[in-house]
Amino acid sequence: MQMTSQIDAGGNDPIFLMFHGYGNDESEMMRILDAVYAPTRADAAPAAIAAVPSYISFRATYARPYMGGNYWYPDGCGVDERQRECAAVGDAVASLLDASAFAHRRKILIGFSQGGYLSYRLVKVHPTLFDAAILLSPSFMGEEQAALDSPTRFFLAYGAQDRTIPLPDQQTAHQVLERAGHLTYREYSGMAHAICDEEIADIRDFLRAI
């Protein structure tokens, strides 16, 4: 697992832990965070969202042969394998965050698709470690009976035309996180398995509120 980071060593701003989707790399999430932190026309953002963010953007464990990009767990694998792969990444991330430099900083997860499910599993296994988690178009296949006991605040979003993530898996994500509490849910008309400008604006608003 490789990573790219930008960290203000002397600051106490939030640190974003970012996990890309299947077939991509760490630059995917860096582009999303850049969009969230881009100046708005009103330019009235609070300090928490106006500064250059600190982040660690991770490249997934496995390289995709021939086609390029990386993945966190094999496409189409079983639930047990998905959870094992996510647990291994979670243990490595938790060990990294044990450093004194991160002790007093808010820790915010952001993940798209596979990276969104991975972010959820990090909270599931380490329920008090993360302050917030932004899950963009994740699959919750196999999590139908999951119970999450965590104070972590969640932002969950899907495109209304997303056919990559089956609707029942989207509904499972909504139900599991709604039962846990602290959920902000958004759906975007006309959007498939992607990111849109309205979603970026909603992420920005979510971060201002936490």
Rank of each mutant, 00 (worst) to 15 (best):
M1A: 14
T4S: 15
T4A: 09
T4I: 12
S5I: 04
I7Q: 00
D8P: 02
A9F: 07
A9G: 09
G10V: 08
G10N: 13
N12W: 08
I15N: 14
F16V: 10
F16A: 03
F16N: 05
L17A: 15
L17D: 11
M18P: 01
F19T: 01
H20D: 05
H20A: 07
G23M: 00
D25G: 04
E26W: 07
S27K: 15
S27Y: 15
M29F: 11
M29L: 14
I32Y: 13
L33N: 08
L33R: 02
L33C: 11
D34C: 01
D34L: 00
A35I: 00
T40S: 02
T40C: 09
D43R: 05
A44M: 14
A45Q: 12
A47R: 11
I49G: 01
S54N: 04
S54Y: 07
Y55D: 11
F58D: 09
F58K: 14
R59D: 07
A60Q: 09
T61M: 09
R64A: 14
R64H: 03
P65Q: 07
M67R: 14
M67E: 12
G68S: 03
G68R: 01
N70E: 05
N70R: 05
Y73I: 03
P74F: 03
P74D: 10
G76R: 02
C77N: 04
D80G: 10
E81D: 08
R82L: 00
R84E: 09
A87G: 05
V89I: 15
D91H: 13
S95F: 11
S95C: 10
A99W: 08
A101C: 12
F102D: 08
H104C: 12
R105S: 12
I108Q: 01
I108R: 00
L109I: 11
I110C: 03
I110W: 02
S113E: 02
Q114T: 05
G115K: 04
S119F: 04
S119C: 03
S119Y: 06
Y120H: 06
Y120Q: 00
R121Y: 10
V125S: 13
P127D: 15
P127N: 07
T128D: 15
T128G: 15
L129G: 10
F130Y: 15
D131F: 14
A132V: 10
A133T: 03
I134S: 00
I134C: 05
L135R: 00
L136W: 09
S137D: 10
F140N: 10
M141C: 07
G142Y: 11
G142Q: 12
G142N: 05
E144N: 13
A146M: 05
L148A: 07
L148N: 04
S150K: 02
P151N: 14
F154Y: 03
F155G: 00
A157Y: 07
Y158K: 00
G159W: 03
Q161D: 14
R163K: 13
P166I: 09
L167R: 01
D169V: 14
Q170K: 03
T172N: 01
T172F: 10
V176Y: 05
V176C: 01
E178G: 08
A180M: 04
H182G: 13
R186Q: 08
Y188K: 05
S189A: 12
M191Y: 08
M191P: 09
C196E: 13
E199V: 01
E199T: 01
I200P: 03
A201E: 11
R204Q: 06
R204H: 14
L207W: 07
A209F: 10
A209M: 12
I210S: 04
